[in-house]
Design a protein around this nucleic acid. Sequence first.
DNA 1: CGGATGATCTACTCACTGTCAAGATGCAGG
DNA 2: CCTGCATCTTGACAGTGAGTAGATCATCCG
Lengths: 206, 206
Amino acid sequence: MVTEESRTGDRYHHGNLRAALLDSALEVLTESGVAGFSMREAARRAGVSQSAPKHHFGDTGGLLGALATRAYRQLCERLEAVELSGRDVRERVAALALEYVAFARDNRALFDLMWRMTQFDYNDPELAEQKHRALGALDRVLRGTDAAQTAEGAALVQSYAVWSLVHGYTTLALEGAIDEEAADPLTSDLLPAMLRLVDVHPRDRR
Amino acid sequence: MVTEESRTGDRYHHGNLRAALLDSALEVLTESGVAGFSMREAARRAGVSQSAPKHHFGDTGGLLGALATRAYRQLCERLEAVELSGRDVRERVAALALEYVAFARDNRALFDLMWRMTQFDYNDPELAEQKHRALGALDRVLRGTDAAQTAEGAALVQSYAVWSLVHGYTTLALEGAIDEEAADPLTSDLLPAMLRLVDVHPRDRR
DNA sequence: CGGATGATCTACTCACTGTCAAGATGCAGG
DNA sequence: CCTGCATCTTGACAGTGAGTAGATCATCCG
């Protein structure tokens, strides 16, 4: 899980503290969740003093913000990787949706954090950019096949609709609000079934 | 905002502490959000010692859980109040959706809390029941007009789809992820437009 | 080569939090 | 009256985020 092991002997200067802190922070976040997160604990696991993170991240919000930004980037990459799978628009949208849910399931605490950054007064322009980028893949898929046939505004509404549905399902499922197959939202056919109800490209309707 | 003013003189026994604590806790939660919530502060505002809440709520999770349960009840009542408005299914669903968003906007911190209770190890059966009840109104509306024509499973999928979409839109909008009319999601036509994309009752399609 | 500068990290402190144990208070029923 | 019990207070402890001052070290410049 650790991207680049710290490999610091016992030198005074860690050398790679920022990356090491991000790793240990992710570990703590995964174990204890957003509510139970502790910056001191993250520092402790990185083998460094309690106030070492300050220089790199400022405060807790800064550390979690950096973590969230990295997570957004990973999510975007995963979405863009499956963007071209499937034969038609519906299959591609479904693939994106399942990848979205899979990411959330594999990184629960991280996914929680990503949509809670306003609580930490952290507004990094890059985080906002990545958040926006997340919609990009979906947007491209929806416009892809029948770009000429779909009006600009309509495509945006479609994107937001699909995103809202998938995001809502994901959060509700992870919270345990949807009892069907709560164990693993991926194996359930619920999400594809819901997506079939959405008019993804009216012009191409069979 | 206070539902039943405490009206305690300076007696040793407050007399109505549970209700007073719920009120002051709601106040603190509204001001500081879930992350910045403090049980001590809530007790302070109720004019009572720091460990007085313990006897009534146990720990912080218990206090927030009681608050969330009350909030779920209020949400359900608001939803059930508009359940019968509108002429057809589409209008009723839209009314429910707007009421859902309105509740979230009017009670931001509370709405945040409602979907974060798993973080506090609080699993009250009544909370789960109210959470389930929230889907009831929507379910009734969807089955209402053409109950005979809609299969059991299909109706459930419709309910979850609408709920997921509305819930997703609400959380995304409150988080600032949807930039359209972010100021007030209610005045935007985005939500109704998205709902129009959902096949709410296929048999009745015009 | 050596000293100075700035980045990085530590040690210490402070106010605050949640939670617990022990005791004070007062209501209600015997 | 007085006794049991729910209620509330006091005091304490460990843990947290955050700030300040100082230690350590790499690097650059003379």
